[in-house]
């Protein structure tokens, strides 16, 4: 089964790096540039996993997560937060928000895949 991964980040570069990391796997990566677009994409696409940046314009990741958790149709979607802030306070704060995991930027693609694979059953694409 092809998994759907929703990448919510205001940086096109990070979205590209995420999409590239998942390329060898049987996944479709959907992109959103802020929390507002991310919520709409989550409701529309019903992703199996959401990768969510924190600091974004229009709607940040924490607000998007709170809205996700307040919506019965979306609250069970697993979320891995991506953050540039590795401080104890920030990590404690985001761990209490009901996320599955978090990843501190900068990260290597392998770290992202390792975290994602703990949440969803990633399968390599079959050779053509």
């Amino acid at each position: 089964m092809t998994l759907k991964v929703l990448s919510v980040d205001d940086s096109r570069t990070i979205r590209l790096i995420v999409a590239r990391a998942f390329m060898p796997y049987d996944c479709v990566v959907i992109e959103a540039a802020n929390g507002e677009e991310g919520l709409a994409a989550a409701a529309r696409e019903k992703p199996d996993l959401i990768l969510l940046d924190i600091t974004m314009p229009i709607m940040d990741g924490v607000t998007m997560l709170a809205r996700l958790k307040a919506d019965d149709a979306l609250k069970e979607m697993p979320v891995i937060m991506l953050t540039a802030e590795s401080g104890r306070e920030n990590v404690l704060h985001i761990s209490k928000l009901g996320i599955h995991d978090y990843l501190v930027k900068p990260f290597r693609a392998e770290q992202l895949i390792e975290k994602a694979a703990r949440v969803v059953p990633l399968q390599k694409k079959a050779a053509a």
Partner: peptide, 20 residues
């Protein structure tokens, strides 16, 4: 976008240290 993201990661590290 890339310069922005690199700066964001540097700032994030400093902010984390200050908050800690």
């Amino acid at each position: 976008d890339v310069v922005s993201e690199v700066t964001n990661m540097l700032g994030g590290r400093l902010k984390s240290r200050l908050c800690d």
